[in-house]
Computed example of a mutant assay.
Amino acid sequence: MASAAQQVIFHPTVSQTLKLWGTTVGRDKTYRAVQYFARFLAWLLLSRGHKIEAARWNALKNHLALGRKLMRLGKPWEHLQSAMRAAQRTDIPAVETITTMGRQVAYFGYLTNDMFVWANNIKFYNLKPSTAARVNKHANRFWLAGILMSITFGLLKAGRLANEAKELQTSAWAEKGSEVERDAKLQANLAARADARFQFIVDLLDVWIPATNLGLVNLNDGIVGLFGFISSLMTLRSQWIAVNGKKL
């Protein structure tokens, strides 16, 4: 019995999961996945008339959302630093630099406003209802702008990488460098394009969340929750690979 318990407790998957949850990103993405799944499930239960069960999952969603705001209190400054670092880069086209900076500044605005939303929700700093609604709207506008900037950046980067791949495959380039060097550059190009496609898909899923919050589109909580859940699982899997060095 003790041997079986040890095998469960010290199972490699358990150890890898604890390692994932030892990172802030790992915990946040796990909470986010549960939050949006709860949003989807609450909508599903409510649509079938199960009001009591739906209220339970809706409460879980709200508390997780509030907890995640607390975890992000210092994050606006990270995005400002990322914007400054992007401004100093000279290895990418100017349009990619501008969209990168725009995305980071937008996320700074989003998370800064989100801090006031959190402070108001926990009654640490009381805002007038009209002011609270305005701050929340500003947060969603910045969030939407950041995602749109990220989508634009992804399209620009994908186009540039595709052109670089074509250039590497031409016979003219082969005369300038060795086959080994070209193959190495092609592999790096393919990896960069895969990363760009991955982030592009995540952005396409997430963009509907602030757009719905702002009333720009009319998606129900079920669809929004499902999109958020899928994008959360995608980024959680990416973080798992980064932490553990292997796929799930």
Score class of each variant (00 low, 15 high):
3 S>D: 01
3 S>H: 03
5 A>T: 06
8 V>K: 05
12 P>R: 12
13 T>E: 02
14 V>C: 11
15 S>P: 00
16 Q>K: 15
26 G>H: 03
29 K>H: 04
31 Y>H: 07
32 R>T: 11
36 Y>V: 04
36 Y>N: 07
36 Y>S: 03
41 L>E: 12
44 L>E: 01
50 H>R: 13
50 H>Q: 13
53 E>I: 04
58 N>V: 06
67 G>T: 08
68 R>M: 00
72 R>M: 11
75 K>E: 05
77 W>T: 06
78 E>M: 10
85 R>L: 12
85 R>H: 07
92 I>Q: 10
100 T>Q: 03
101 M>Y: 10
103 R>Y: 05
104 Q>F: 13
110 Y>F: 15
111 L>H: 08
114 D>T: 02
119 A>Q: 05
124 F>Q: 05
128 K>M: 09
129 P>S: 15
130 S>P: 02
137 K>P: 02
139 A>Y: 06
140 N>G: 02
140 N>F: 09
140 N>Q: 15
142 F>C: 14
144 L>V: 05
145 A>V: 06
147 I>G: 04
155 L>P: 01
163 N>D: 12
169 Q>G: 02
170 T>C: 07
170 T>G: 10
174 A>I: 06
175 E>F: 03
176 K>A: 13
180 V>F: 11
181 E>Y: 00
182 R>Y: 08
182 R>F: 07
184 A>S: 03
196 A>S: 15
197 R>Y: 15
204 L>F: 11
205 L>N: 05
209 I>G: 05
214 L>V: 11
215 G>W: 10
218 N>H: 08
219 L>G: 01
219 L>R: 04
220 N>M: 04
222 G>C: 08
232 S>H: 11
232 S>L: 02
236 L>H: 08
241 I>G: 01
243 V>Y: 08
245 G>Q: 04
245 G>D: 03
